[in-house]
Design a protein around this nucleic acid. Structure first.
Lengths: 231, 231
DNA sequence: CTTCGAATCTGTGTATACATTGACGTGTGA
DNA sequence: TCACACGTCAATGTATACACAGATTCGAAG
């Protein structure tokens, strides 16, 4: 694989993970040293990050773009428009077997989450499978690309307001309804169920964010032990 | 200005204009020679074009991406989702004076188009002003960015199926209704009027495309004398 | 004459060298 | 002591040199 692509993927993941917090200056020489390559592929990676919105061009150089809670509303407005349309299109073009398998999994999420709390990661994996199934079903690369951009930016905020188990159980029910509507070929229901799900998801995130503001700024959520190196 | 940015803008415009048709190989050395710069800034420009979808990475190198009539439907599906949401948001956040001025212009399009046929370009300019007003009003950079991408791709197809004067008159009435709804703060009407407009626009383009297929492939539309250098 | 192989050549990917711009620090003069 | 100016330095932007991979072509052998 090309060094430029590797640098891009590495930096991209470090930004979405939060390892490179917003405002971090991405010096070409520094990153080239760190990644063990020369400035040329690093520049390529930085330009891609900029065009994706994960980094911004400053007069001094390139730095990781800001993303705050105010952006959540904006991102959800775009996500709402795109994913409702995607649900509608998926209901038309779906492969029923794929979504039937997903439906079974979503209906058994309670088992998944009741066994051990760490299995929250498995739930996110299930949601990823749903996203991929939607991407396949819509048959529309432009829509897929636009949704990927929104998902990338939302992933940066995900770790700032992690969902608790009760919310995940509700979300699973909402997802199950979306999947059911897609299986039935009911585009309107699929779109509206997506609307409901995104509204609840946003409400929960905003409530979580408000409750977090009352605590100390750099406290991690109590059921998550990620070691962060936030400056 | 940086050489890389100039190269990007130049290539971008040449692709959307059709001067660089789909499938054209964009050799680094060739473009560097042509633009009078070295390969480094050309590479930057090419990477940006790829991430924007205007070019694709081939095993041989980079070439201008394909865009055909089949893509129109896909692009309109995304455009529908985004612009309806944009109209809805604009109706909430608009500056009434800006859209009142636009409304007057759209109501006088008949004068504009009756004087001389060449003024079709002025109409497109008016639509651009509406787009910019929407971008301002939505207060959502993510939505603006997503719409810009869709508009870029649709611009590539615009010259393949140009609208006639009758269609432009209808489109002006549709635009006027959208603007009126935004002025009134009627988000639902703004979104639905946008839906109507895009449906009619797509129908017209598809009908135009179907009628063009009956003629010879490289015939230009009768009321447009653009000299094309399609190979 | 056909086919296989090797060599060359074209073009990308990467590294490095050079140019330029802006900032920071220091030194000197008032 | 403060302010201004000059010099140095650090970082980006650009050009070029080098490495490597794939394709094409030419030549030789069957």
């Amino acid at each position: 694989m090309r060094a430029g692509d590797r640098a891009y993927q590495t930096l991209r993941e470090e930004i979405t993970n939060g390892d490179l917090p917003a405002g971090t200056v991405l010096g070409e020489v520094e990153q080239a040293m760190r990644l063990g390559i020369s400035r040329t592929p690093v520049r390529e990676a930085l330009r891609q990050l900029i065009s994706e919105g994960l980094a911004v061009q400053r007069p001094r150089g390139v730095e990781v773009s800001e993303v705050s809670f105010e952006n959540i509303g904006e991102l959800y407005d775009v996500r709402l428009a795109l994913e409702c349309q995607a649900a509608r299109l998926a209901a038309q073009n779906r492969d029923p077997d794929v979504f039937r398998a997903l439906l079974v999994d979503f209906q058994h999420v309670s088992d998944l989450l009741n066994t051990r709390d760490r299995n929250r990661h498995d739930y996110y994996e299930l949601v990823n499978r749903l996203d991929e199934a939607l991407d396949q079903a819509v048959h529309n690369p432009y829509l897929v690309s636009a949704m990927a951009t929104v998902r990338t930016h939302l992933a940066r905020i995900r770790h700032m307001a992690r969902s608790d188990r009760a919310r995940l159980m509700d979300a699973a029910r909402e997802h199950a309804l979306i999947v059911q509507a897609i299986i039935d070929g009911n585009g309107d229901l699929a779109a509206h169920a997506t609307h409901v799900h995104l509204y609840n998801s946003l409400s929960h995130r905003l409530a979580k964010a408000a409750s977090l503001e009352t605590r100390t700024a750099d406290a991690v959520s109590p059921d998550e032990g990620d070691a962060r190196e936030t400056a």
